[in-house]
Design a protein around this nucleic acid. Structure first.
Length: 394
DNA sequence: CCCCCCCC
């Protein structure tokens, strides 16, 4: 818990029995007498409270509600103007205040670490330094958030991330106040309503170019990717682009793959009802159809042949590999239509470019590592930001 | 004594 009195603030932590003893009693915004804690030096990595010390509850600790009138403030912020975020280190815990310029929809993602399904909402926060940054809300807070009135958001204890430039994320220890009745909030709202809302701002998140930005945001046209010789270095280069499917080769689009979980190696038909996998060194009585497409994609600048594997291929074709395998053998018209229908659709592609050598011949190979339907809001936001950049720099 | 805090 973060504690505050008229002189300053301090974090206190209770463990185990002390949690059981006090957690029902202690509520946010209430006032207590607290005595008998242990004092220790604070690890600044985990808190930005304005105190070099922290308190730890122990067996002797007593907590009593204070019912007397007091003029203890409810929250103390150390707001960092958004134009300072670029110079701060990743993982810094900090307080910010800004206007919620835009709120994205709630999205579901799966945590890599825990495998848990998480709900998140990104909002774009702007302040009077004319910087804007992405702030991620989680769980219930993400679901309940309403950004339609462009409220002022004051966050205590947000975490700074270096993803795509700079972005912010709420932690369970963070406090989010919406339209707080504090001087800074009124000042910011005044700025926003009197020109700030249309001011040209620098987006600290999702930065373009420069090479140092995260690859997720590394948005390029095919023409730009070629001009920059992407893929010519030792390591693979990644970029994201919006492109339409020109054509997909039907020939060799499917291969019969080892049915063993996670193997996916091409099997050899033994012509006796068995299929041999050299990798597993055994024979199976069945196989799985898997997709490996050669596709031509085009944007305004150029076109590009790419390789598309299973999951991305199913997304592009709008069918599964096993359905497609069935169609190819049983209904050629349907099979043909899948490819006709896939043409001239737009997608957002994440591409990997790498120089590959075989038979003494080196050539750039472009592989689709992810593809998704175009998100109109996100796409338009990028176009608007590019137009602003062009207008501002030329 | 925690300090994991998520995704892209």
């Amino acid at each position: 818990m973060d504690l505050l009195d008229e002189s300053g603030e301090i974090r206190a932590t209770a463990f185990n029995e002390q949690v059981d003893k006090f957690m029902d009693m202690i509520e946010v915004d209430k006032v207590y007498f607290i005595s008998g804690c242990t004092l220790k030096t604070a690890n600044k990595q985990y808190s930005n409270l304005n105190n070099d010390y922290e308190m730890t509850f122990n067996k002797m600790t007593e907590v009593t509600p204070c019912h007397e009138a007091s003029d203890i403030p409810t929250m103390q912020f150390n707001f960092v103007p958004l134009d300072q975020l670029e110079s701060l280190e990743k993982d810094t815990i900090l307080d910010i205040i800004g206007v919620c310029k835009e709120a994205m929809d709630v999205a579901s993602i799966t945590s890599k670490a825990s495998g848990k399904e998480l709900r998140k909402r990104d909002v774009q926060v702007v302040d009077d330094t004319n910087r804007e940054v992405r702030l991620t809300l989680w769980g219930r807070q993400a679901e309940n958030f309403d950004g339609t009135q462009q409220p002022v958001l004051a966050v205590k204890g947000a975490k700074l991330s270096d993803f795509n430039g700079r972005s912010l994320s709420l932690l369970s220890s963070s406090t989010l106040q919406i339209n707080p009745d504090i001087r800074e909030a009124h000042k910011l709202k005044g700025w926003f309503d009197n020109g700030g809302n249309t001011a040209e701002t620098v987006n600290l998140s999702n930065q373009r170019g420069g090479g140092s930005a995260g690859m997720g945001s590394n948005f390029k046209t095919f023409g730009e990717a070629k001009l920059e010789n992407l893929g010519s270095g030792d390591q693979a280069d990644y970029y994201t682009t919006k492109a339409s499917v020109v054509l997909i080769r039907k020939e060799n689009c499917l291969y019969s793959a080892c049915p063993s979980d996670g193997c996916n190696k091409k099997v050899v038909d033994m012509n006796n009802g068995l299929y041999r996998c050299e990798k597993c060194n055994r024979e199976y009585d069945s196989f799985n159809w898997r997709l490996m497409l050669s596709a031509n994609l085009a944007d305004i600048s150029d076109n590009q042949w790419v390789t598309v594997f299973q999951d991305q291929a199913e997304m592009l074709l709008g069918t599964t590999s096993s359905e497609l395998g069935f169609m190819r053998e049983n209904s050629p018209d349907k099979f043909q239509n899948i490819f006709t229908d896939a043409a001239f659709k737009n997608f957002s592609f994440k591409l990997r470019v790498k120089m590959e050598t075989y038979n003494d011949e080196s050539r750039l190979k472009t592989t689709v590592v992810a593809c998704s339907p175009l998100e109109p809001k996100e796409y338009n936001r990028r176009l608007i930001s590019e137009i602003k950049q062009m207008a501002g720099q030329s």
